[in-house]
Amino acid sequence: MKTKKKTAEVSLSPEALEEEQRIRRAFKDKDWAEIKGSNSWMIFKVMSEFVEGLEKLAKIGPCVTIFGSARVKPSNPYYKMADEIAYQLVQHGYGVITGGGPGIMEAGNRGANRAKGKSVGLNIYLPHEQKGNIYIDPDKLITFDYFFVRKVMFMKYSQGFIVMPGGFGTLDELTEALTLIQTKKIGRFPIVLVGKSFWKGLLDWWKKVLVTDKMINEEDLDLFNLVDTPEEAVRVIDDFYSKYLLSPNF
């Protein structure tokens, strides 16, 4: 006589149980066609982007993200600098992640490709149809609909950020990283601002207004480094890990 195997019961905390019940209530008595025709469908689109991103990037290895303007042309000194930074990062054992588009992003992928290293692009669908640049490894291009999902991937799979001159998008990515580190939502990693003359006005305002008015602490300004050359930028990344990986509190 065969006996039925008992299914192991998972003991959930009250908080986890309430969360599960809340999810069950949200989808109770709804069929698939109804879900597809409702706002709830967005949840599944978001989930699919997370799943694709997590699965493709899970085994990517140590990478540094290069942020910066999509509007910069190859003749621009910052384009050339981003290309060289990426090239040197690969020589130091890192892959390179960018936003996948033109400008500084293209320069970062170009430098990584030139050094025969990992060249990753996390692209975003935009009204003007931004396309992935030609220097991204074919199997390492992911295109997202949602900026917030894309930013999670940058934060989760980057060992450091190189922040070149850029506009609102670059500032958004920079302040997102600083906020998460400041509030200890993620562990600290190196953030390097490249171009002292470009960043001077913003940093002066942070010091004179944000610190003076106690909107941030003065030590929050230690969460990033300011450099002017590719060699300095790469050295900050290397020095950070040489120092912190030896620390028992890292």
Rank of each mutant, 00 (worst) to 15 (best):
V234P: 13
T175H: 14
W199G: 01
G117W: 01
G117K: 01
F224V: 03
L57S: 02
S242A: 13
P165S: 06
I136P: 15
E9V: 14
E52L: 13
I216R: 11
K28P: 04
S197D: 13
K200H: 10
M105L: 12
F161Q: 04
T170H: 01
L202A: 09
K59V: 08
K45V: 10
Q88C: 07
S75V: 05
H92P: 03
H92C: 08
L178R: 13
L221R: 08
I216Y: 07
L221T: 14
L17E: 13
E84R: 13
S158A: 10
G108E: 05
H128N: 07
D204M: 08
K2A: 09
G93T: 04
A86P: 02
P190F: 12
V163I: 15
G201E: 14
A112C: 01
H128W: 12
R150I: 11
A107Q: 08
A86S: 15
A82R: 00
E173H: 04
K118L: 09
D220N: 12
M164D: 08
P138E: 15
M47P: 06
I85T: 10
K73E: 07
L89C: 13
V194N: 00
K36M: 09
K36I: 12
T65Y: 05
Y78N: 10
E129Q: 14
T7N: 09
L171M: 14
L122I: 01
G103S: 02
L126N: 12
D83A: 02
D139W: 06
D139H: 13
S242Q: 14
Y79E: 03
S38N: 07
M155F: 04
W205I: 10
I35F: 13
G201V: 03
F250T: 02
L245A: 07
L17R: 10
K73N: 07
G53T: 03
L193S: 02
E15S: 11
L17M: 14
S13D: 02
L126F: 01
T3Y: 11
L180Q: 05
M81C: 06
Q88E: 14
K207A: 11
D213A: 11
K73G: 00
V149H: 06
N225E: 13
A177E: 09
T170C: 01
L246T: 11
Q88H: 13
L245R: 09
G68V: 02
T7V: 11
G187M: 06
E106A: 08
L178K: 08
L141R: 06
Y87R: 13
G160N: 04
T7W: 01
E219N: 10
K243P: 04
M155E: 11
F168G: 00
G160K: 09
N249Q: 10
V72T: 15
Y87N: 06
T179I: 09
W41I: 02
T229S: 10
Y125E: 14
Y125P: 01
W205A: 05
Y157M: 09
